[in-house]
Amino acid sequence: MRNLTDEEYLLPGNAACPGCAAVMAMRIGLKVLGPRTILVIPACCMSVVQGHCPKTPSKVPIFNTAFAASAATASGIRAALEMKGIMDVNIVCWAGDGGTADIGIQSLSGAAERGDDLIYVCYDNEAYMNTGTQRSGSTPEGARTTTTITGKSEGKKDVPGIMIAHRIPYVATACTSYPLDFANKLRRAISMRGTRYIHLLSPCPPGWRYPTEKTVEVGKLAVESGAWILYEWAGGRCRLTGPSSGLAERSKRRPLEEYLRIQGRFAQADPSKIEGMKRRIDEEWERILALCKG
């Protein structure tokens, strides 16, 4: 925490909902990234957080772009800066899960395949929160959204896995409740070149239906129950980080029910549904542990 500056790059009085984990993480993220950073933001909650023109809470440049286009826009920015000989700037896409897992995955995949020099942070609040909580590819099984009122029947799309398959230099997962873990991962990402990807689980009080003060606790329960696994993948090696490194054994994890019950979006998940969710989580752990063994 001593490494984090008191300088605020995301100024108070922005238009985020109270208790928003996404701005919590952006505030910390910008402290790590510093002033020589350009943010590229597609349609997402962050487009609203910025408030109305001619005001903005951001002290670093933000370029707002179309929903599907953040990675490609960032590629163009990088190309222009290279032509102008400016080499010391972080170009960072900061996109929601819809703009990453769904509509934006083509341009993200294109940039990653080309190895374009950018950092991509997906803050994942597991639904289209900006438009009022509709199901996305990143919504987990069982979660109620306004377009899955009986709970989503499919599982969550594994975007970090997709990014690992692109063989880019760095892929990590993070959670807003572990800001220092996130900060460390951003620092590692900054130290590399090429396409770097961080998938940041970002609890959302109105969308996940919990009281605003519980944002940190909900995120911690996601990790401690094993529902969200913290890891980083670099140079062909995967390792668990933060609390997840002690949770490889199932018995060490907190019961999934504790994570589910604190949120309203899983209220209607019955025991058989929860068993299915647990099976998926176990499979995910097996996959990540296998990746860690190499």
Binding site: T65, A69, A71, A72, S75, G76, A79, A80, E82, M83
Partner: peptide
């Protein structure tokens, strides 16, 4: 002397041109 981005779609082609132009480059 130019950067050529072999993008994966026309949508991305124009997005990249806009990003470059927004930095003052000729795209």
């Amino acid at each position: 002397r130019a950067k050529f981005l072999r993008v994966e779609s026309e949508h991305s082609a124009m997005a990249a041109c806009i990003g470059a132009s927004a930095c003052g480059a000729r795209a």
